[in-house]
């Protein structure tokens, strides 16, 4: 078995809302190994988004232990979390989240700017990443000149640019038609075959099936065969 790169032990996340405590995650356990492609499948309101926020180090758990690449995330401050996100996580969003005033290549360069990659190296890597997702002819295009599928591929190139430990995708096909959605999923499979670890959050069973492993989340509880067998 490959190296464990992500471990969650009894993660609880609760929010105070209108004088009552709402428990969103009720003791989640999860292990992800290097090179895995895993889908977190659940309906809306199940705690999916909270899961993604915690995995993506945008949020910290109320209690429990989250270890990413041998570091305890719960103990880190905002600045350290920013560094972790920069180094470990490549985000892919449902609505692509490209900056409209930047060209495709500039969008891909953005995370590398924050990671402190030198300009020359940055452009070279951005070029390579765009080639990898098949958009070498669109580098100077702006998001509004690209189709949805192309925009999502730019977003994938952006997520890959810092060579992160995990690709974290949140409903990556949610804003795409079935055909382009399938193309994007095909790209995900290829990337996974190249050894990339991918965590995908979705409500769509068919999309989730692309992954090698599916964990279901329902009402704040995670049902994971692998974890349970562990």
């Amino acid at each position: 078995m490959n190296k464990e790169i992500l471990t969650m032990r009894n993660i609880i996340k609760s929010y105070h809302m209108a004088d009552e405590e709402q428990i969103i995650l009720k003791g989640v356990n999860l292990k992800v190994y290097d090179g895995e492609f895993i889908s977190i499948l659940g309906p809306s309101g199940s705690g999916k988004s909270t899961m993604m926020n915690i995995i993506g180090c945008l949020d910290t758990p109320t209690s429990g232990e989250y270890i990413l690449s041998d570091r305890k995330i719960g103990e880190l401050d905002q600045i350290e979390l920013a560094h972790i996100r920069s180094k470990e996580i490549g985000f892919i969003f449902q609505s692509f989240q490209l900056l409209p005033r930047l060209s495709a290549i500039e969008n891909v360069e953005l995370p590398m700017i924050y990671a402190g990659v030198a300009p020359g190296e940055r452009i070279k890597r951005a070029q390579t990443m765009l080639e990898r997702v098949g958009l070498e002819n669109k580098t100077k295009h702006y998001p509004n000149q690209l189709s949805g599928g192309q925009q999502q591929r730019v977003a994938i190139a952006r997520a890959l640019s810092t060579n992160p430990t995990i690709l974290l995708a949140d409903e990556p096909t949610g804003a795409l038609d079935q055909k382009t959605g399938n193309q994007v999923m095909g790209l995900f499979s290829e990337l996974n075959k190249e050894g990339r670890t991918i965590i995908m959050i979705t409500h769509d069973v068919n999309v989730a099936k692309t992954a090698g492993r599916i964990v279901r989340i329902l009402d704040g509880n995670l049902y994971d065969e692998v974890a349970e067998n562990d």
């Binding site: 945008l58 905002q78 600045i79 920013a82 560094h83 180094k87 989240q97 924050y114 952006r158 810092t162």
Partner: peptide, 16 residues
Amino acid sequence: TTEIGLRKALGAEPKR
């Protein structure tokens, strides 16, 4: 707001 959130998700430090 969204842009700021995105930049943060992409690894921008608060001081950036």
